[in-house]
Design a protein around this nucleic acid. Structure first.
Lengths: 205, 205, 205, 205
DNA sequence: CATGAATGAGCATTCATTCAT
DNA sequence: GATGAATGAATGCTCATTCAT
């Protein structure tokens, strides 16, 4: 039985997210988390091998939530609606889980290397959700997996750009709030059209 | 005359960029830079008042290069070509100056506060370059400044998303190289169409 | 349980006093203390939030000792004896606790600002001890609080001067040892007479 | 011919005093002085072997000024007036040259060791000035040199105590301004009476 | 299960000083 | 006579981590 009422592990994770949210990545120290939780920094090492492991757990959590939310939103009257819902949900996730978003998508590659590759399968999972929707929104038949991935990636990347600048407060005040993000969703939905064009040859006509 | 061969200041900046590139922002310490340059950490303070000042110098450099490149690319037979050139140049800048890109666009707001606001006028400058091109690419007449900013922001955000994921090696191998980035440029050019639609009302048909 | 033998905190304080005694305030660095104690500089921060906090602890300790000693000496057959005992005790404290004396009374105002004002109440406490004795030594009746403070301050200031020069080894060898300090005590006891004279008007005949 | 108009040496000393006065001893760095003077820190080493040497020069200057002022004040209608003038002058010197006073009388012995002993002859000089006056103020005849030194030291020590606490802002507001210092002068003048008593035997009756 | 004690490496920054020019 | 470049040592302080209890 844990002394402090509830199990320490989830409370550590919660506090970590809290620190991330309120004070940013650079403030995320083991001691800072421990203080918030009301335990010692050493206790964290009972539940996580590393600070890295804690971070990875956070990332995993984030991807699970994102995946669940996308799956729940994975519907719509028309294929377009379906895709739009997914996009809107992605944006909404980033907005209401910015602390996750930070570690999930903003960590530097050098820090990511310590993150085992197979974990990224989860990441691909959600891309495939996006991919399916993208493809359904396209009237023509049987798309190749490559084309699907390509389009899904473009949708993702577009949303990611909007969300990132939004969270970093780099968007002009007049466009903050939903405006810019809505624009991005609308644009993302056109990804399919763009990807139907030949890719490798130069971007002509 | 420098005792140490060549002038230290540019070498410090170069090494700082290098660290940024290879190991990311969190690894950017004065000692780390000094080690790379082959001087003492104290020497850095001969050329920069602060670590912050060094960072600002880096950011300024980056924006100057970006601005110069965009201005040089600010032309084209048709308005569409003009815009496409700008977009391609942006992507190309990010690709060949990713170390700058990190400090220019990936710094967390909390660390940005120390960066005087008026410096970001430069940032707006390049957004306005984008804005002009965007508007020219639109056949209809006299767009409002608000609409211009809105569209330019969407172009930027789209490119930024693609570039960020690309630099963070988050894009699937099969799409790396120019593919995804080209797609993003093509999509960005459609920003205008999206923005001509009403913003607040729901994304209809 | 301390890994290191005895509890570190008192050993840190002791070493700090030691450094103060042997090498003075400017030599009082965390690393210097740590070296003397045989631990890391980081360990000091387990017991003191700050270097300042360490200093404050030292000051507080000093005032507590001084107060206790003065209180114990606060007696005498005659009022004169009473006052004389207090003075002698003050001098004795400074002599056998010169390391405390340094931080208690020689810190520069600029460094004192960080020392919360209300801590100096303790200082006033001992001044009032002095004040009472001073007043009792005066045959005439009911002195005003202002006059009491004035006389007590003069007593203190006189002793402080003698003690300071003594500790700084500025007194001629022939007078070191008790001579000069005794003289000062004797002189301090005449403070009352001097203060009974009008203050503002010029020092006549 | 010096480049900068006037000779650098006195300007360095002046700035050093200025720093001492405005920002205290701990702020007295070679760079800080150099900045104030408008030269390089290296230039200081053309005129002073050390930072210590600069300090010693400052101390010497201070003693010279003090000596000169005391000498000028070394007169009075009666012996008492004479002594009073000297005391008042001492206090006045400390008040209007607090930057000198700091280095002259508040440096820790450990830092003083680097100050060659024979320089202290100057210090004794001014003590002897005081001694003469003290002795003249005593009606009885031919005092021994020892007694003279003893009394002069007590006078000095009393004034020093008052001045030190005053400069360190340790004196209660109600007594600041001339009050406490005047009291100290008056008390110092009684030093002779105290010293005529036997010294070594215990402080009785 | 959890802690308190401790560490070693690192951080940004400042300093007095040297020395070739 | 003066400088600009550079340094080595020090400063206060924080961090992730370990380990005996």
């Amino acid at each position: 039985m844990p002394r402090n009422g509830t199990d320490l592990k989830p409370r550590i994770l919660r506090e970590a997210r809290n620190v991330l949210l309120e004070e940013g990545y650079t403030a995320l120290s083991t001691r800072r988390i421990a203080r918030g939780v009301g335990c010692t920094a050493a206790s964290i090492y009972l539940y996580f091998k590393n600070k890295d492991a804690l971070l990875h757990a956070l990332i995993d959590e984030g991807f699970e939530i994102l995946h669940a939310q996308l799956e729940a939103a994975s519907q719509g009257e028309s294929p377009q609606d379906h895709l739009k819902n997914l996009c809107a949900e992605y944006v909404s996730f980033a907005n209401s889980n910015s602390e996750y978003y930070e570690v999930m998508f903003h960590l530097h590659p050098s820090q990511m290397e310590r993150y085992p590759i197979d974990r990224y399968r989860v990441q691909r999972n959600y891309l495939s959700l996006l991919g399916e929707a993208v493809m359904k929104s396209r009237q023509d038949s049987s798309p190749s997996p490559e084309a699907t991935l390509r389009a899904a990636t473009l949708v993702w990347s577009t949303l990611h750009g909007a969300v990132s600048l939004h969270l970093a407060r780099r968007i002009d005040k007049s466009l903050r709030g939903p405006n810019h993000l809505d624009d991005a969703v609308r644009l993302a939905m056109r990804a399919v059209e763009v990807c139907s064009l030949p890719s490798q040859p130069r971007v002509s006509s």
